[in-house]
Amino acid sequence: MLDALEVVTTVVVGVMVGVEFSVAFVVNRILDALPEDSAQLGHAHGGRMLGAVMPVWYITSVVLVAAWAVAGWHQDGTGLVVTAGALLILSVVMSLLLLVPINNRNRTWTPENRPADWKQQLNRWQRYHYARVAVIIAAFTSLTAALA
């Protein structure tokens, strides 16, 4: 049973890391290359779509890692699992404090109502997102190391 939990947790966290990495280094660059209105509309749509999915994914990841840590408490690698959990919790805190406020504004913007500094706000979101991606990559690395 623990083996299955380890695999499911690693896959769920790994796919989440892949999605967030893709947003940071592929999707945002594609959107930023579009003409101004299209870029802003694409970012707003992405904010609505991923803003609905990612909170569930992040919380599920934290719960799975916590379950793994509890179920495998006396096994080798538990310290790495706990570290991964702490990093995932940090990513949730970063999201709530830094990224979600910007995303909540961005997802309502249209070319008619966006603020004058919309590009600066999106650039700030992207910088915070790079930091969050680094944190969740570290968490995923800890999980995979715990399997070894």
Rank of each mutant, 00 (worst) to 15 (best):
A71I: 07
A71V: 12
A71K: 11
G72M: 15
G72K: 10
W73G: 11
H74Y: 08
H74N: 14
Q75D: 14
Q75L: 15
G77I: 05
G77R: 06
G77Q: 09
T78Q: 13
T78W: 07
T78E: 07
G79D: 03
G79C: 00
V81H: 07
V81A: 14
V82T: 12
T83H: 00
T83R: 01
T83G: 08
A84W: 00
A84G: 09
G85N: 07
G85C: 10
G85H: 06
G85I: 09
G85K: 05
G85M: 09
A86D: 01
A86Y: 00
L87Q: 00
L87M: 09
I89G: 05
I89C: 11
I89L: 15
I89A: 15
L90Y: 02
L90Q: 02
L90K: 01
L90N: 03
S91I: 09
S91R: 08
S91Y: 10
S91K: 06
S91Q: 08
V93N: 05
V93Q: 06
V93L: 11
M94V: 08
M94T: 04
M94C: 04
M94G: 04
S95M: 14
S95P: 00
S95T: 14
L96R: 14
L96G: 15
L96H: 13
L96C: 11
L97Q: 15
L97I: 13
L97E: 14
L98W: 06
L98E: 07
L98H: 07
L99K: 08
L99G: 09
V100H: 04
V100E: 13
V100P: 09
V100M: 12
V100G: 08
V100N: 12
P101H: 05
P101Q: 07
P101E: 08
I102E: 06
N103S: 13
N104R: 12
N106C: 04
N106E: 07
N106S: 07
N106L: 08
N106H: 05
R107L: 07
R107P: 01
T108C: 01
T108L: 03
T108A: 04
T108Q: 05
W109T: 03
W109H: 02
T110R: 01
T110V: 02
P111K: 06
N113A: 00
N113G: 01
R114Y: 00
R114I: 01
R114S: 03
P115K: 14
P115Q: 09
P115F: 06
A116S: 10
A116L: 05
A116G: 04
D117E: 11
D117P: 02
D117H: 06
W118R: 04
W118I: 01
K119V: 06
K119E: 12
Q120V: 04
L122H: 02
R124I: 09
R124L: 13
R124M: 08
R124D: 08
W125A: 06
W125L: 06
W125T: 00
Q126E: 12
Q126I: 03
R127G: 08
R127M: 11
Y128K: 05
Y128P: 03
Y128W: 15
Y128S: 08
Y128A: 09
Y128Q: 10
H129L: 03
H129P: 03
Y130N: 12
Y130V: 15
Y130L: 15
A131Y: 15
A131N: 10
R132V: 07
V133E: 12
V133A: 08
A134G: 15
A134N: 06
V135M: 04
V135W: 00
V135N: 05
I136Q: 11
I136R: 12
I136K: 13
I137S: 13
A139E: 02
T141G: 10
T141W: 13
